[in-house]
Design a protein around this nucleic acid. Sequence first.
RNA 1: GCGCCCGUAGCUCAGCUGGAUUAGAGUGUCUGGCUUCGAACCAGAAGGUCGCAGGUUCGAGUCCUGCCGGGCGUACCA
Length: 566
Amino acid sequence: MDKYADQISQVVNDLYGQTIDAELTRPEPRFGDYATNVAMRLAKPLNRRPRDIAEEIKARLDASGVFNEVSIAGPGFINLRVSAKSLGGDLNEAFDGELPFGNNNDGAGKTVVLDFPSTNMAKPFSVGHLRSANQGWAASNLMRDTGWTVITDNHLGDYGAPFGIWVVGFQKFSSEEKLAERGIYELGDIYIKTKAAIKQEQTEGKHELEDEAQQWLLKLEAGDPEAVEYSERFNKISLDHIHKVMERLHIKTDYELGEKFFAEPGKKAAHKLVEQGLARQNDDGSIIVTLDEYGIKTPILILKSNGAALYATTDLGTLLYRHDHFHADRVIYAVAAEQKFYFEQLFAMARKIGLNMELIHMWFGLIDQINEDGTREKMSSRKGVVLLEDLLNEAEKRARANAKSDDISDEDVKKIAIGAIKFTDFAADRRTGMLFDWRTMFNLTGFSGPYVQYAAVRVNKILHDNPNVGEIAPDYDYEAEKEVILKLLDYPNVVKQAADNLEPHRIATYVYELAKEMNRYYENTPVATADVPAGIKAARLHLLRQVAYVFQHALDILGIQIPSRM
RNA sequence: GCGCCCGUAGCUCAGCUGGAUUAGAGUGUCUGGCUUCGAACCAGAAGGUCGCAGGUUCGAGUCCUGCCGGGCGUACCA
């Protein structure tokens, strides 16, 4: 609690004239409710023994009468105990603040653009895009709750080679019937099959298919009606699929400005940088930006030798657009770790050309899969990726099978399935590689989404059955509720930490711990049974409302919905 | 070769930015608990020389150095 930390800082200032930012930690319950290490931190500057300093601080804190108990332990920790009742008062105060409980205003007046899930339109949604979707979505919610103006943009991979490959492959390997029947899955297969065929061709020294695909690209750029018709049809199929899957994930973005949108502006910008002397055109026509002054030896290539755009070209155009049109103060890219070096280059280039934005690559570890022999391996399209819709279907099947009764609605089953999958994504630090295992992917028990949902559902049920809180007994001591109250008081700081570090897993860890505390409480303390006196029942219901609020708030950040029953 | 990331219980992972003689969860194994608000729950047992070796200091899983092992990246793919 800031209140207590500030008080300690003030005491230190009074006693020693030292400005110190006292931080409170939560020690093991046997030591106290809160603890501070300021005495140890002051030992060196004051050249005194930490325990002596702690004694002096303790004397002041005792005199203040705020704490039930102040004790000194170990090398000089100061442990504090506060009465459950006054902690409950602190919690009410925090809930009565101007901002919703848990929110802060760190980003007030600033705009952030979030780039996710940056779907590749050539193939159906696979689990490969799941992390970007989840992490990006959670990050956008964290930014929103910390006062930022948030713009989300799905940077579609809709430019270049895939189109030509689609058309060639469609004519060679597919048919209208198949396309009508299988949609994006047919297009994805066509794409993979045709790329393999092109590769095969190359080993034989031929390039007929490749040339043909290239021809279609040129036709499209020239506005050839047949090419345009293909393009519009294929893109619609792909986009409809993307929308459908994202809707199932309960995730959406404000914009879908794809690579195609930024290709021409990007090319123009590349040439302009050459004129400005910021970029260099090689003899073969390609354009690079050197980054030696930023400690990066490999220059970034922003235009191909044949004058065509590549990744960096469209990203350059995108950066300029987000700067000029969105007036972004910050841009966050939720993209896998593989591209770390590329983003270092891109961000260095942005600085070099004078773009004054905070650029963050919110990277995450790769998804591994487990082989039959127990070894781990990176998931690759070569080995066969898991399609997201298959994953969702399987998760729903398992959630349904686990449901207590048959009258749980489909809506609720979906929320449970999605909750399980998403929570798994947030179970570990995003940088940790994720193991995709059909056996553990949709955990329904323990450290899992459904565990938290279950605790929330139980709380909501009690609140639903007891809509009126009533008059709270003024002398109620809240001892039974103390651990839950302490946990709730931690929440705003957890949100801040998660937002500052873009670490949504802190929210998942926290909400799990809250659920655990709540389940424990639920087990031991009746809230609204017949034998609970009205005044105490009111006190407990009031607290449960606060618990329910935090469950809702935290799960909302993670993009997890609470079912009505489960 | 160089750069970045990682190595914690059988397995999957946390570890509050250096803190407290028992390093935490889940899962798996074993034991107990549904006549009171929902057992997708709760209580308990067992399981670790935190990759190895040094160093920094009151104090290291956390910071530094060197090894060993793994992953990713290293300009015309995205």
